[in-house]
Nucleic acid binder design. Structure first.
Length: 125
DNA sequence: ATTCTAACA
DNA sequence: TGTTAGCA
């Protein structure tokens, strides 16, 4: 796991901050946890601590709810996403591979990087 | 001041 | 889901 993903997975936000960031009530946020849709960590004093990924997850849940999904329905959505990820893993076509291929395409097909800019002919002003 | 669990008008 | 009670 790289630094960026590591930071996003760090549980450092108390529920009060999560409330402000998601516009969800404490009641809802805690309830979704009992429904096993989010899994916040716990601090020493038993306080729930959320990560940025948890924030994204809560916002997603919010959207699914607006689309008419119920708790178990949303749970199934994430179950499928997990199965999907496992399938891709077995096929060795991971997200990292996709990004690697895309970057190669961009570098060859023409041009938006500083390397190329420095090689362009100078123009007088 | 903030969050937690449990319970209910 | 909201709200309130009684703790930590």
């Amino acid at each position: 796991m790289n630094e960026k993903q590591l930071r996003r997975s760090l549980a450092v936000l108390p529920i009060g901050t999560v409330i402000k960031l998601t516009s969800l009530s404490a009641r809802q946020i805690r309830y979704y946890e009992t429904q096993e849709l989010v899994f916040p960590e716990r601090s020493e004093g038993n306080r729930r601590m959320y990560s940025l990924n948890d924030i994204d997850r809560l916002l997603e849940i919010k959207d699914y709810l607006n689309d008419g999904f119920n708790m178990e329905g949303i749970r199934k959505v994430y179950a499928m996403k997990k199965a999907q990820a496992a399938a891709e893993e077995s096929q060795k076509l991971s997200d990292a591979d996709v990004r690697r291929m895309l970057r190669k395409e961009l570098l060859n097909s023409g041009g938006m990087l500083e390397d190329n800019l420095t090689k362009l002919p100078r123009r007088r002003i």
